[in-house]
Design a protein around this nucleic acid. Structure first.
Lengths: 199, 199
DNA sequence: ACGAATCGATACGAACCGTTTCGTTTACTG
DNA sequence: CAGTAAACGAAACGGTTCGTATCGATTCGT
């Protein structure tokens, strides 16, 4: 094997790769998305534009990869929600934290950019679901299943549906800016979900 | 007054305006949104590009106006939901219809384009809420209020929240393509909402 | 020291945006 | 019917961005 291979230049590759992804995150977080151009990313990363196009086919793909790398940093330690046994308290904690996250301008711009790309690109949407959305949903579902087994949710409850009812209103309110994302709002979503799917 | 005014050229204006809006709708409905350019709209409408820029400041605004004109055609006859007295049946009818609407490819592309523009343009989002979303929401809320007065919903129920719980999951599932928009799914959203906000 | 992989930089064509310009058509007026 | 002014279609233009092509320099293993 060793005589089949040339020199290993993977360290260089990795360094420029990280520089590109870091620069992309910084740019998307700090300016309006329209101002994030491939050339700006290349300049910020101290990299030639072609080095970006050698790895990703489009700007969308770069932005997505930049976001994806974030969640893969926290690898191994698979996502898990708090489970104190008190479902209502646990969910309110999570929903309040999610609402606060959306209020952060940098995060806001990042996720808006991602959603805009996703809305018109089915392939990217599928990758988003598989690599970013699914793991989180599974973690939430695991928490609900635990509650269901403890008799805190109806035994026949559709947990996927419950998750949607819990989270989708928050997401929509954020995306359309149709109302404030307060802690009280987060709480009321938990309350409604528990009324709908409680025992 | 009459001697103060020159000739009235409003008929020409109106004709080209309609041609532009119609062409925009056709283009957005039939191709991917990236392929809809202002020049393509002008060509399809048989109109100079400048005639478009005389009226609207950007492509986003044109696309939005094209959509808005649709709902203003059905003017006067303000939106109203069926009210047979059977809340569950009425809501399931509406939610099933909404789910079907999203399944239409032309409508799908149109609304995706709108959402992509809205996601990164707060001003456009505000106009969207005011002119398109609000009237529909008010109609739905009126139906819920009628049910509330009939004792079919909890007297203290937050109707805005109930609407979000009812509709947001469908919207999110469509936007992220995270599942099929079946009649059974529409029904289960109504069921969940009624469990959460019923008496 | 040498060769191969990778790189940064730069020039380029194509597409699109939004502006400007210009000669023409349209609708009304006297 | 001739004159006027608003609105128009067409076309050219500068500016920006995308994605590609090219090339000499740098990095790494041998």
């Amino acid at each position: 094997m060793s005589n089949e291979k040339g020199p290993d230049h993977s360290r260089r590759k990795e360094r420029s790769r990280q520089a590109i992804l870091t620069a992309t995150r910084a740019l998307v977080a700090e300016e309006a998305y329209e101002k994030v151009t491939v050339e700006a990313i290349a300049a910020r990363a101290g990299v030639g534009k072609q080095t970006i196009y050698r790895r990703w086919p489009s700007k969308s793909a770069v932005v997505f990869a930049a976001l994806l790398a974030l969640s893969e940093d926290a690898d191994g330690q698979s996502v898990a929600l708090p489970d104190t046994g008190d479902l209502e308290a646990d969910l309110k904690l999570v929903m309040r934290a999610t609402a606060e996250e959306f209020a952060d301008p940098a995060f806001d711009r990042l996720i808006r950019a991602l959603n805009a790309e996703i809305a018109n690109d089915a392939a990217l949407a599928a990758e988003y679901r598989e690599k970013l959305a699914q793991p989180l949903e599974e973690a939430k579902k695991a928490r609900l299943r635990s509650a269901q087994e403890a008799g805190q949710l109806d035994a026949d409850a559709d947990l996927d549906l419950a998750l949607e009812v819990l989270y989708a209103p928050l997401f929509r309110r954020w995306l359309h800016r149709s109302g404030p994302l307060t802690a009280a709002y987060a709480d009321s979503l938990v309350d409604a979900t528990l009324r709908a799917f409680g025992p």
